[in-house]
Write a protein that binds this DNA or RNA. Structure first.
Length: 847
RNA sequence: GGGAGUAUGGCGGAACUGGUAGACGCGCCGGAUUCAAAAUCCGGUCACUUCGGUGGUGUGGGUUCGAUUCCCUCUACUCCUACCA
């Protein structure tokens, strides 16, 4: 046996053993309970980063633990392989995107394998492979035929740097999610999926996702953004030569209708367009204001149009065109009630419009009520409001609605913020959209027998525009039905399309059909999905939609893809800057003991920055391959799991990694020590302490794994290790008892540090592989015949005493009161009463 | 502007439904071992203290025999979202 633990040899050895035994290759097995563990698959960017290490270490704990608990575990891995970086690399490195991608996959696969993950590599998929994307082309045709996919010309978010269209979800603070460029609005003809028709179901089903973080559900719910209100028809009084005869307005505050003093419509509203044709000034206003950010300046144009108030005879409201009204939300038109909406109030002040309060705050007198400077949006009673006077807000809303319906001037209306998913991207490295534009103007799907529509290979990549558009031999084709000339769609799918169903394909990664029903039915839904919170809306919402859409096109028959979701925190690291505000990498910075200051490697002063998410731009990344090389995969994994709760950010520190490495060696030393113990000479007087602690550890580690509190599991394992170390040194426990505890420890370590676990198991002559063993079983806690009781005075603990469990309250009282400390505290004060909690507390309450 | 969350030693973090605050780890201090160092092991480590105690979980208050835990107030930080009618 080795006296020092050699991680390089050991880790390689066990990785080979697991592979030889095909231990992680899973087969469908109806007689066994399945468990599907999945971490979000990586983009093959070049090499793995610490975020991946954390993500996959977390998932591996679940997978190995569930396997040892007897589940038939599927734990696959693949590559989210389409995307823009490959095109950028193609330009810079002058090699095709496919070559770059497959090379990265090879590197990263190797890196992941060196972590010792329990992955079934036979199920590996790459989304850029035609055998993968041909199925999604087929899905798209089904969606097209069922009306869930459609094409329309629409205002889209255009990223001028990436030269492509982005979905709303991909625009963050007006900037592209990948390029960071300011997004422009452009009219383009685009493919869409009808996510909006699933808005209600996507919202309602959130309630059923009990194993999802409340935070993610809330974010999705806000994103879907359901609001219930009324659509009110305002008839146009004049001019009477307009083709628009009325304006439909959406509101959630129909109760404030009597406070309405104007209407406003969007720059893109049909009426605005009609007016622009008639009036140069309107045209000019619209043109100028489409460029002005309404956040900087809210502008309106008072048109000559007047509309009729639905309930007040003879009341006419002016109609404005305003730059802050969104055409994409509601009906693109509002009525303004300045007293109860801050924006309307600002607008009314700017254009000198009437302000009429109609909601009276509680405890105010209607006769002398004066509005404050801000719009009042709180609770109250209706006044100045005709038939609504005296009502509460909710009642007034219903009342208005009924009246509108009876007058045929409006109806109840529900709007969702969620809009349809724009799919088209003007990129090369994506899945071609399987559609042909025939010379007669018809748009037809490619025949399924002609799938996949493969990407053409490309030699010299140009930096602007869509390369597919320029390859005529690919683009020009014929209609398979009529033989007419046709042009291929040159746009490709948004890459979120691929990631919306990859978890299904893992069930039958090599089959000819896209989905083998019985396999998908067996494995899905994913029992535990693990990934970053940054996908809370984008990927997770698209995937949920996609499963529902596939259900409705008869590909599967369940409603939600991910039963359990866990979102882990980021891996952060200290940042450093030089005095010119430039980033310094941690390797460049050292601490100057004399000057008590940080300096860089050229002896200039360095400043400590914030602790931030590891990123290349901030130079605070730590390369996992180096860490695995120096310390081993087990150390890296152990560090990733200790200290910080998985849901929170984890700060990478060198000392923390050192500590983890020490622990691995400490455990190994236990084995070395135990072998030097002579079994015959021992008195087994403390066996029970070790047995009890071992059992308690099993209980705690198990519970903490179940609850994703791996940091606590690790603390439990530390405690047991410390005790074992102490007892081995004291030589007061029998060797059998030590060995028994150590064996259990080896199994408990398996999900966290699997290589070390196997090595210990082998040394202790355990049967088979550690990973193939049953998770240790715990007994109920041994019941002790004594207990500790805290003696408190006025709730403050003064003494902790050991008592026989059979002691009565009276016994305990008399003993406690005789204690010097207690006696002194009481002195000549009077005892008011005793609070007695059996086996826990005796509290003496003094007057 | 709207929504959500967090706040505990020098640091990361424990504390089950209110019941011994600070488990476990890091760091630090002292010691052992060593020619020396690394590594390892042992002990200590919330603060103040007249060594009897006293105070202490962001602030201020409340409920309770008893509050890190429940309620209210304020403060700071983080995240999401944003003219959504």
């Amino acid at each position: 046996m080795l006296t020092r633990y050699h991680h390089k040899k050991v880790e390689k050895y066990w990785q080979e053993k697991w592979a030889e035994a095909k231990i992680f290759e899973t087969k469908k097995n109806i007689s066994k309970k399945k468990y599907y563990v999945l971490e979000m698959f990586p983009y093959p960017s070049g090499k793995i980063h610490m975020g991946h290490v954390r993500n996959y270490a977390l998932g591996d704990v679940v997978a190995r633990y569930k396997k040892m608990c007897g589940y038939n575990v599927m734990h696959p891995m693949g590559w989210d392989a389409f995307g823009l970086p490959a095109e950028n690399a193609a330009i810079v490195e002058k090699k095709p995107p496919s070559e770059w991608t497959y090379q990265n996959i090879k590197t990263m696969r190797h890196q992941l394998q060196s972590m010792g993950l329990s992955i079934d590599w036979t199920r590996e998929i790459a989304t850029c492979h035609p055998e993968y994307y041909k199925h999604e082309q087929s899905f798209f045709i089904d969606l097209l035929n069922s009306g869930l996919a459609y094409k329309k010309k629409s205002l889209v978010n255009w990223d001028p740097v990436d030269k492509t269209v982005l979905a709303n979800e991909q625009v963050i603070n007006g900037k592209g999610w990948r390029s960071g460029a300011d997004i422009e609005q452009k009219y383009l003809s685009q493919w869409f999926l009808k996510t909006s028709s699933y808005a209600e179901e996507l919202l309602a089903d959130l309630d059923k996702l009990n194993d999802w973080p409340a935070k993610v559900k809330l974010m999705q719910s806000n994103w879907i953004g359901k609001s219930t209100g009324a659509e009110i028809k305002f008839d146009i009084l004049n001019p009477d030569n307009l083709s628009n005869k009325s304006i439909n307005v959406f509101t959630t505050r129909q109760d404030t209708i009597f406070g309405a003093t104007f209407c406003a419509i969007s720059l893109n509203h049909p009426l605005a367009k009609e007016l622009a044709l008639m009036d140069k000034n309107v045209y000019k206003f619209i043109k100028e204001n489409s460029k002005i950010n309404p956040e900087k300046e809210k502008n309106g144009f008072r048109t000559a149009v007047l509309v009729k108030h639905p309930f007040i005879e003879n009341k006419k409201l002016p109609v404005f065109i305003a730059n802050f009204i969104l055409m994409e939300y509601g009906s693109g038109a509002i009525f303004g009630c300045p007293a109860h909406d801050q924006r309307d109030l600002d607008f009314a002040k700017k254009y000198k419009l009437d302000i009429l309060p109609v909601i009276l705050p509680k405890n105010e007198n209607p006769k002398n009520y004066k509005m404050g400077l801000k719009a009042y949006t709180g609770d109250g009673i209706l006044f100045n409001s005709n038939f609504l006077n005296g009502m509460e807000i909710e009642g007034a809303k219903k009342s208005v609605l009924n009246k509108l319906i009876s007058k045929n001037a409006g109806k109840e209306k529900i709007y969702y913020r969620l809009r349809d998913w724009g799919l088209s991207r003007q990129r090369y490295w994506g899945c071609p959209i399987p559609v042909l534009y025939r010379e007669d103007g018809e748009i037809i799907p490619v025949a399924k027998k002609d799938l996949p529509v493969k990407l053409p290979s490309i030699n010299n990549f140009v930096s602007s525009g869509n390369p597919l558009d320029q390859i005529n031999e690919w683009k020009l084709t014929k209609c398979p039905i009529t033989g007419m000339k046709a042009i291929r769609e040159t746009d490709t799918f948004d890459t979120f399309f691929e990631s919306s169903w990859y978890f299904l394909r893992y069930c039958n990664p090599r089959s000819k059909e896209a989905l083998v029903k019985e396999d998908v039915d067996y494995w899905l839904p994913v029992d535990q999905y693990i990934g970053g919170i940054e996908h809370a809306i984008l990927h997770l919402l698209y995937s949920r939609f996609f499963v529902k859409a596939l259900r409705d096109t008869n590909h599967l028959k369940f409603n939600e893809p991910f039963k359990g979701l866990f979102t882990q925190g980021m891996v952060t690291h200290q940042t450093y800057k030089n005095i010119n505000n430039g980033w310094l990498s941690p390797d460049e910075v050292s601490f100057d003991e004399n000057k008590k200051k940080y300096k860089d490697n050229k002896n200039r002063e360095a400043l400590i920055g914030k602790i931030e998410k590891m990123s290349k731009s901030k130079k605070n990344v730590v390369d996992p391959t180096k860490i695995i090389e120096i310390y081993g995969a087990d150390t890296a994994r152990w560090f990733m799991l200790s200290d910080s709760p998985p849901s929170r950010d984890l700060e990478w520190t060198d000392s923390g990694v050192g500590g983890s490495h020490k622990f691995i060696n400490k455990i190994w030393n236990l084995l070395v020590e135990i072998n030097s113990i002579d079994s015959s000479s021992l008195s087994p007087k403390e066996n029970y302490i070790l047995n009890e602690k071992t059992n308690e550890t099993i209980i705690n580690v198990t519970n903490n794994i179940d609850e994703f509190h791996y940091n606590k599991s690790i603390a439990n394992l530390h405690e047991l290790t410390n005790l074992l170390q102490k007892l081995i040194a004291k030589k007061t426990v029998s060797k059998d008892c030590l060995l028994n505890s150590l064996k259990k420890l080896a199994l408990l370590l398996q999900p966290f540090v699997p290589h070390l676990s196997e090595e210990i198991w082998k040394e202790l002559k355990g049967s088979g592989l550690a990973i193939s063993n049953q998770w240790p079983e715990s007994k109920n806690k041994l019941s002790k015949d004594y207990c500790y009781i805290a003696i408190q005075i006025n709730g403050k603990t003064k003494e902790v005493l050991k008592f026989d469990k059979k002691s009565t309250e009276e016994d305990i009282k008399s003993i406690a009161l005789e204690k010097q400390k207690v006696k002194k505290m009481i002195m000549n004060r009077k005892i008011k009463k005793f609070i007695f909690v059996p086996e826990k507390i005796l509290n003496v309450v003094l007057l």
